Computed example of a mutant assay.
Amino acid sequence: MVHFGIGVSTAVSATADTLARAVQADRGGLDLVTVSDHPYHADRLDAYAEIGVLLGRTERVSGLVSVTNLPTRPASMLARTVTSLSALTGGRIVLGMGVGGLWDDIARLGFAKLTPGQAVRAFEEGIRLVKLLGGGGAPVTFDGEFYQVTDLEPAAEAMPPVWTGSVGPKSLAVTGRVADGWMPGHAADWLSERYRTSRPLIDKAAVDAGRDPGEIATVYNFPGRITAEPLARTRTGDGRWIGGSPAQWVEELTGAVLEHDAAGFVLFGPGGSAPDEAAVARWAEEIVPAVREALG
């Protein structure tokens, strides 16, 4: 399955528009609504409070925190949150997980700073632990460097797929070993140097762990303009996507799936802004159906 979604704002001041865009995405037949996770900013909504409300307002679309700020959300509690959302929504949730990066901001929340090496090790432990805490089974005892639980009963609800926002070589290797999907950082796409140098590290780690790299989806945050008329150029001189007419978007995305194994696209406006009502309408009503039809 190829996933099509939109990213919505987490700004407190944009709440009404955010709710409207989620409902629009749901009614338009999209697959995902995503929000970012920056709990240290007072003018931003808490990501899991927001995604819970958005899922409560919708019927079909899935929610994704892209990606969960793991240092501020202990893995065992994150597992409880996500399996609860899954049970409440009929499985309409994907678990995004990240290493964490803005450590001064994280520290202001009262959490300890980790070194880059510690952060990556905690990231891998966190993914392994959350995967143990869904789907029922025997009580879990986990004695890690960063996480310890004792005789903790897993939720009966299955743990949803885990997608990461890995950037560095060590965290990319973690994605290959234990995750189910990857969302390249900095809105990099399938033609970027970041993708060309990063995806092989995921694939090698997967093979070394006895996994099939093909089972690790690549889903792209994809900003751009949707224009009424075709653009003379759809990419900048350095190769970054600008946008274009619906037909140009359809050609680009279809090629990404067929030629580069892209597994999904989350629409953002130019510069990573939340797409407006008109852009979401063209995405859901013109571009996504045409790509789905082209893919058969």
Rank of each mutant, 00 (worst) to 15 (best):
I106K: 03
A107K: 03
A112D: 15
P116Y: 09
A122L: 02
E124S: 01
G126Y: 08
L129G: 11
G136R: 03
G137P: 00
G137Y: 08
A138N: 10
A138I: 00
F142V: 05
D143T: 15
D143H: 08
F146L: 06
F146Y: 13
Q148N: 07
Q148V: 15
T150W: 04
L152R: 07
E153K: 13
E157K: 04
E157D: 06
E157G: 12
M159T: 12
P161V: 06
P161G: 06
W163P: 07
S166M: 11
S166G: 13
K170I: 01
S171N: 08
L172Q: 10
T175C: 07
A179G: 06
W182V: 04
M183Y: 01
D189E: 09
L191Y: 09
E193C: 02
E193G: 12
E193L: 09
R194G: 00
Y195G: 00
R199A: 12
P200H: 07
P200G: 03
L201I: 05
I202L: 12
D203S: 13
D203F: 09
D203A: 15
V207H: 14
D208P: 01
G214Q: 10
G214T: 15
I216R: 05
I216N: 11
A217D: 15
V219P: 10
Y220A: 02
F222T: 13
P223M: 05
R225D: 14
R225K: 07
I226T: 08
T227G: 13
A228Q: 04
P230A: 11
P230L: 05
P230G: 07
R235N: 05
G237Q: 13
D238W: 13
